[in-house]
Design a protein around this nucleic acid. Structure first.
Lengths: 208, 208
DNA sequence: TCGCTTCCATACCGAAGGTATGCAACTGGT
DNA sequence: ACCAGTTGCATACCTTCGGTATGGAAGCGA
């Protein structure tokens, strides 16, 4: 008998497990992003993934663990996107600016805002959130900052603290951006303020 | 018969109502601040206030409404504190710096962090949170910024956007501060970074 | 004094997170 | 190829909690 004649028959355990976990995370990302963590039930996520509660609780310790997986996935996506954007720029300084702009653009996605900026701190706690972000988004940002500092663009001081504060300002700007009646046009002005802030941080008050 | 011979007897309706609402808000502020919104039940708050669920649902539309009241109270407290601190300074620029430092100090309170910085966006939504903050904390901050701008300390640009981003950076710095092993000593270094950021925003890159 | 409203407690309901159980599919050894 | 043993997952159940309905006691206007 030919294996996988029908896609459901004769799958290995790892295949089944990976498939359902992927389905669950994808469904959770959609529903958490659309309706928020609190109003999204486990059964709804499971149903959207084509399974039941049992599968969800078999693969994840609970609702928060499922959200944790979604958050990590979200971070991996944005970090990869930022690195791709930064790689297109010739020097460290323009890469840093390009990354900030890219982050703001990414904030136009409602699911990202809901999961990463709104729910994550309350669900996972600040420590966990920043730990994960420090391995993804903040890693890219601090990397860009260090590169810019090595190129002599950045003034002295505590770079880690400065990156965190810059990051907080960017998140705030992202929410502000998305809230505006015309986000597409607001993107330019908010980006301008962000770049001004960046230039200011770098000790180049009139770089723009 | 003498009114209020015993404190419980012969109180007017408004008195009873005000007393229980105050008790409920105070209890909610304590429990939400200590255990977080999600893990704090209405009955726990009511019991801590010395009443039952019925009283809570009589005075508030639901759990979120109770949290809303707590959040407004937090904002009123911090705004008053900031205005008091700013009033002690001679000029607009030092008042602005003093206010930022004061805000960071206030972030050392775990209840404040939990309620205002962690839970509020998820529970009330970003729009509601910023609307309330714009009437309190952000009002004081933008007021200080405008005063500093009028005194010629601040460069041109969108002041509202800049205040929001500065506020985001301050919130982030507050969390970072509280997370550090020795918050009291970290306060000075984080404050230094914040003032540097402020100076940078003002177009005075070497003001500190 | 007497309807009427306000304040609040008790009883109840439904939804949702989490657990226990059971069964079917896969796996590894013989 | 067969057969323990494990894994993947569904179903049934429990508990907690937000929210509602009901009832009664305390003030209030007339």
């Amino acid at each position: 008998m030919i294996p996988s004649a029908r896609p459901t028959a004769r799958r290995t355990q790892a295949e089944r497990s990976d498939a359902t976990t992927a389905q669950l995370v994808a469904a959770a990302q959609r529903l958490f992003g659309r309706d928020g963590y609190a109003t999204t039930s486990i059964v709804a996520v499971a149903a959207d993934a084509g399974v039941t509660k049992g599968a969800a609780y078999h693969h994840f310790e609970g609702k928060a663990a499922l959200f944790h997986a979604v958050f990590v996935r979200e971070q991996e996506e944005i970090a990869a996107e930022l690195e791709r954007a930064a790689a297109e720029e010739p020097d460290a300084w323009s890469a840093l600016r390009r990354g900030c702009r890219r982050f703001l653009e990414h904030c136009l996605d409602p699911g990202f805002r809901r999961i990463v900026l709104l729910d994550a701190p309350a669900v996972l706690g600040w420590e966990t959130v920043r730990e994960i972000e420090y391995a993804h988004t903040l890693r890219v940002l601090t990397g860009g900052m260090r590169a810019a500092a090595a190129a002599g663009h950045i003034g002295d001081g505590d770079l880690d603290v400065r990156c965190q504060m810059m990051f907080g300002a960017l998140c705030e700007a992202g929410m502000l951006l998305a809230r505006s009646p015309d986000p597409a046009s607001a993107l330019t002005s908010v980006t301008a303020e962000a770049e001004r802030l960046l230039s200011a941080l770098a000790g180049r008050a009139s770089a723009l």
